[in-house]
């Protein structure tokens, strides 16, 4: 089995300040990487650099394609969840899940099931009226719309109660079993099975 993603000697410098230097890791199918660091340590920048939203200064990011070759460009969709969760305040809970690219063609019943799975029953409430934890649950329900090879999630366990934390841990395990990998960030190590690195 080959890693879906290889990060080699990755470095980023912003305004003459080294954000991160010489980062190396591989993402095998079904395995996780957890990036630990304090506020402002460059965790988000690293995720965004991997996705190509920010240019890297040194090193390379290699993605596996269908022919088992590594390329500097990606040939498959990844799931990215940043600090801003991509939740629209003027849409209902249901609409926030239904009106996304990954839910195209998905029957209404399946969307209801996903919302139920993440513990959201108030599907007609506007997202503007939800707590941070409930908004995060909508974002987590989006993980399940499609199976992605690699999920890049920025601080998935922040602002969550124990029940929601357990739910996320279970979902990660479930998706790992299907061959999906997670690159997650956090301030301290979580309970998920992962290779950990500090930046």
């Amino acid at each position: 089995m080959l890693p879906n993603l290889k990060v080699e000697n990755l470095s980023s410098v912003r305004s003459e300040k080294v954000i991160f230097d010489n980062i190396n890791f591989e993402v095998m199918p079904g395995q996780n990487i957890e990036i630990i660091g304090s506020n402002g340590s460059g965790k988000t920048t690293l995720l965004r650099t991997i996705l190509g939203l920010i240019n890297q200064d040194k090193g390379q990011i290699l993605w596996l394609d269908d022919n088992d070759n590594y390329n500097k460009f990606r040939t498959f969709d990844c799931f990215y969840q940043g600090h801003q969760l991509g939740i629209k305040n003027l849409l209902t809970v249901y609409e926030n899940l239904q009106l996304t690219k990954n839910s195209i063609g998905m029957p209404q019943e399946e969307i209801y099931k996903l919302l139920e799975r993440v513990g959201l029953s108030n599907i007609n409430d506007f997202a503007a009226n939800l707590s941070v934890g409930q908004r995060k649950r909508i974002a987590v329900a989006r993980w399940l719309l499609k199976e992605f090879k690699v999920y890049l999630i920025d601080e998935p366990f922040s602002a969550l109660d124990d029940k929601a934390t357990l739910l996320i841990e279970d979902l990660i395990k479930e998706l790992n079993a299907k061959g999906c990998s997670f690159i997650i960030t956090g301030h301290r190590p979580s309970n998920i099975l992962a290779s950990r690195m500090e930046i």
Binding site: L51, G52, C78, L85, K88, N89, K101
Partner: peptide, 16 residues
């Protein structure tokens, strides 16, 4: 502005 603030704009550039 709203898509940028709430992170929806990221999807435009991450997508293939």
């Amino acid at each position: 502005s709203e898509d940028f603030r709430d992170g929806t704009l990221d999807d435009f550039f991450i997508s293939l």
